[in-house]
Measured scan of single mutants.
Amino acid sequence: VTLFVALYDYEARTEDDLSFHKGEKFQILNSSEGDWWEARSLTTGETGYIPSNYVAPV
């Protein structure tokens, strides 16, 4: 499993987005949709879409 870490804070803009804080780690569930990836936060357990340019591989 490839994990990603948040480089910046992000505040959700829609109900499908996932808010997160810098340093939070994610498991990517689906990265085939372009710039927005479906991810699960390893901190909160919540699932939603995150901007791929806000995260980097651990």
Rank of each mutant, 00 (worst) to 15 (best):
V55M: 09
W37Q: 03
R13V: 13
A39V: 11
S52A: 12
V1N: 14
N30G: 09
P57D: 04
K22W: 05
E33D: 15
D9S: 09
E46R: 15
L29Y: 06
W37Y: 08
K22Y: 06
G23K: 02
G23I: 01
V55T: 04
E46S: 10
F26H: 00
T43K: 12
N30Q: 08
A39P: 00
F4Q: 03
T47Q: 11
A6H: 00
L7P: 01
A56E: 10
Q27D: 07
I50L: 07
A56S: 09
E33I: 12
E15L: 12
F26L: 08
T43A: 11
F20C: 02
S32M: 13
F26N: 00
A39M: 05
N30H: 08
S41V: 06
F4L: 04
R13E: 12
V5I: 13
S31Y: 12
D17T: 15
N30A: 08
T14C: 14
Y49M: 14
T2Q: 13
P57C: 06
F4M: 08
D9T: 07
I28E: 00
D17Q: 15
S31P: 09
L29W: 06
S41C: 07
T2P: 11
G45M: 08
K22S: 07
H21Q: 12
L3R: 05
V1F: 13
T43F: 11
F20D: 00
V1P: 13
E33C: 12
A56R: 11
I50Q: 00
D16M: 14
E24H: 07
F4C: 07
K25L: 15
L18P: 01
I28Y: 03
L42H: 05
P51Y: 07
V1L: 14
Q27H: 13
I28A: 03
Y8L: 08
P51G: 03
L42N: 04
E24Y: 05
F20E: 00
P51L: 08
W36H: 07
R40A: 05
S32W: 10
Y8S: 07
E38S: 10
E38T: 13
T2C: 11
A12Y: 02
T47N: 05
R13F: 09
Y8G: 05
T14S: 14
L18S: 01
K22D: 02
H21E: 09
V58A: 09
G34C: 11
R40D: 01
E38W: 15
V1H: 15
R40W: 08
G48D: 00
Y54D: 01
K25Y: 15
S31R: 13
S52T: 07
L18V: 05
K22V: 10
G34A: 14
W36G: 03
R13G: 09
G48Y: 02
F26P: 00
A39F: 03
Y54W: 07
R13C: 13
V58E: 10
E15P: 14
G45D: 06
G23F: 05
S41K: 14
R13W: 08
A56C: 08
R13M: 14
I28W: 02
E33P: 11
P51T: 02
F4K: 02
S31W: 13
E11I: 14
H21N: 10
G34S: 14
G23E: 04
S32E: 12
T43W: 14
S52N: 06
F4A: 08
D9G: 06
G45F: 08
K22Q: 08
A39N: 00
D16V: 14
G23M: 03
R40M: 12
V55L: 11
D16A: 14
E38A: 08
D35E: 13
Q27L: 14
P51K: 06
L18N: 01
R40I: 12
Y10E: 00
V55P: 01
G34Q: 14
A6Q: 00
W37V: 06
S31I: 12
W36R: 15
D35V: 12
Y54S: 09
W36Q: 07
F26A: 00
A39C: 06
D9H: 07
H21V: 15
Y8D: 07
R40F: 10
T14Y: 15
Y49F: 13
W37P: 01
R13D: 09
R13I: 12
S52I: 07
W36F: 12
L7E: 04
S32F: 11
A39D: 00
S19R: 04
F20S: 01
K25P: 05
R13S: 11
V5K: 05
L3K: 05
E24A: 06
A12N: 05
L7M: 09
L42R: 04
S52E: 04
L29D: 05
H21P: 05
T44S: 10
P51Q: 06
R40S: 05
E11H: 12
S32C: 10
E38V: 15
L42T: 07
T43L: 12
P51N: 08
P57A: 10
E46P: 01
L29R: 05
S19C: 05
L7W: 03
G23H: 05
L7S: 03
T43E: 13
L18Y: 05
S52V: 08
S32I: 11
V1R: 09
N53M: 11
D35I: 11
K25D: 02
T47K: 12
S52K: 14
D17A: 15
I50T: 01
T14P: 03
S32T: 13
G45C: 10
Q27N: 08
F26K: 00
S32L: 11
F26R: 00
T2S: 13
D17V: 14
E11K: 12
G23A: 03
A12C: 05
R40G: 02
L3H: 10
N30M: 07
G45V: 01
V5N: 02
V55I: 10
L18M: 13
N53W: 14
D17L: 10
Q27G: 03
G23C: 06
Y54I: 05
A6M: 01
V58M: 12
Y49C: 08
Y54T: 04
Q27C: 12
G34H: 12
S52D: 02
L29K: 05
E11A: 11
P51V: 02
A39T: 02
I50D: 01
F20M: 09
N30T: 08
H21W: 10
V5S: 04
T14N: 15
K25F: 15
I28L: 07
N53V: 09
I28R: 04
K22P: 04
G45K: 06
G48M: 03
V5T: 06
V1Y: 13
N53Y: 10
E15N: 12
N30W: 09
T44K: 04
N30D: 11
F20P: 00
L3I: 13
V1T: 14
D35M: 13
L7Y: 03
E38P: 05
Y49H: 07
P57T: 06
Y10F: 10
F4N: 01
D9P: 07
N30Y: 07
H21M: 12
T44H: 04
Y54L: 10
P57R: 08
G45H: 08
A39R: 00
I50Y: 00
T44V: 02
Y49V: 08
S32Y: 10
E46V: 10
Q27F: 15
T47S: 10
R40P: 00
E33N: 15
T14L: 10
A56I: 14
D35T: 13
T14D: 12
K22R: 11
E38K: 12
E38Y: 15
W36L: 09
P57M: 09
V1A: 13
D16Q: 14
F4R: 03
S32V: 10
E24K: 01
E24C: 06
Y49S: 07
G48K: 02
E15R: 11
T47R: 09
L29C: 07
Y54K: 06
K22H: 06
I50N: 00
D17M: 13
L42A: 05
L3A: 07
S19H: 06
S41H: 07
F4S: 03
A6L: 01
E24D: 15
S52P: 07
L29F: 07
S52Y: 08
P57S: 07
P51F: 06
S19V: 03
G34V: 14
V58G: 05
D16S: 15
Q27E: 12
A39S: 03
D9A: 07
E38G: 05
A6P: 00
D16N: 14
T14F: 15
I50V: 09
K25H: 12
T2F: 12
H21R: 14
P51R: 08
N30C: 08
Y54C: 06
L42G: 03
